[in-house]
């Protein structure tokens, strides 16, 4: 038997990448800004997201969220308290979300009737890195209770994110959190990254965050309009 070498040269996650690309086009055409929230478990993604949903709803935006967890729909129920439509993706052991899982859970929603869609990924700082979900922006969250050097320990995820957010900033003093060191760590793995410091409890930084979302959405929309005219 003769061995033969077949050159393939293709991305292993090609199927996911292609689906994500198609979803991104669909999101953009519908005028919905999609955010993929990633962090380790316990950073406060769900609390941050619930507060964000409430504030955007108050401003008259149409918002929705899908949330990934290994088990339970507890987070979906917590998020639904905001009044926004929410769907839970139970991964049953899987450590990250993939584009087809998100797509399946969006099937019943009319994207044209949304302004913002949030995808809360499974709490994990490694596995979600390689899976594009068609998001407009990836947001990496880090809480003051976690240690300032977390971005250095998980450079892959922080590096693929567009925005970083330091949460629970109201606890910074109690945790002896070194703010400068944390920002330096983020800057080191992703120079020039936009960084927010927030507290859901005290409201600190929330206005800036919401304004950023509004701006990001209108910039995205005007970019698309420019492309189509």
């Amino acid at each position: 038997m003769q061995p033969r070498i077949l050159e393939v040269r293709t991305q292993i996650l090609k199927k996911n990448d292609e689906l994500a690309r198609a979803m991104r086009q669909e999101f953009e055409a519908a005028g919905v800004l999609v955010l993929n929230l990633v962090s380790s478990p316990g950073t406060g993604k769900t609390s941050m997201l619930r507060e964000t949903l409430c504030r955007l709803l108050e401003k008259g935006y149409r918002v929705a969220a899908v949330v990934g967890d290994l088990e339970t729909d507890n987070d979906a129920r917590r998020l639904a308290e905001s009044g926004a439509p929410v769907r839970q993706i139970m991964t049953h052991g899987m450590c990250h979300l993939e584009a087809d899982m998100v797509k399946k859970h969006l099937a019943e929603w009319d994207l044209n009737s949304l302004d913002f869609l949030f995808i809360e990924n499974v709490g994990n700082l490694v596995c979600p890195t390689s899976w594009d979900l068609g998001e407009s922006l990836r947001v990496a969250l880090l809480s003051v209770t976690e240690g300032e050097d977390k971005p250095l320990k998980y450079p892959g995820l922080f590096n693929t994110s567009d925005v970083a957010m330091i949460t629970k900033i109201d606890l910074a003093d109690v945790c002896e959190f070194n703010r400068g060191k944390a920002i330096e760590s983020i800057e080191s793995v992703r120079p020039g990254m936009r960084i927010f410091e927030t507290s859901v409890k005290s409201g600190l930084g929330m206005n800036e965050w919401i304004e950023f979302l509004q701006r990001a959405r209108s910039q995205r929309l005007s970019k698309i309009e420019l492309q189509t005219t």
Binding site: Q2, I5, L6, V8, R9, S130, T160, P191
Partner: peptide
Amino acid sequence: PTADIRSGRELELHSIEVDT
């Protein structure tokens, strides 16, 4: 400082060797 990555994110199937 630079965030302009040119390689290092690959997750690529390069080639396979088969018995024919």
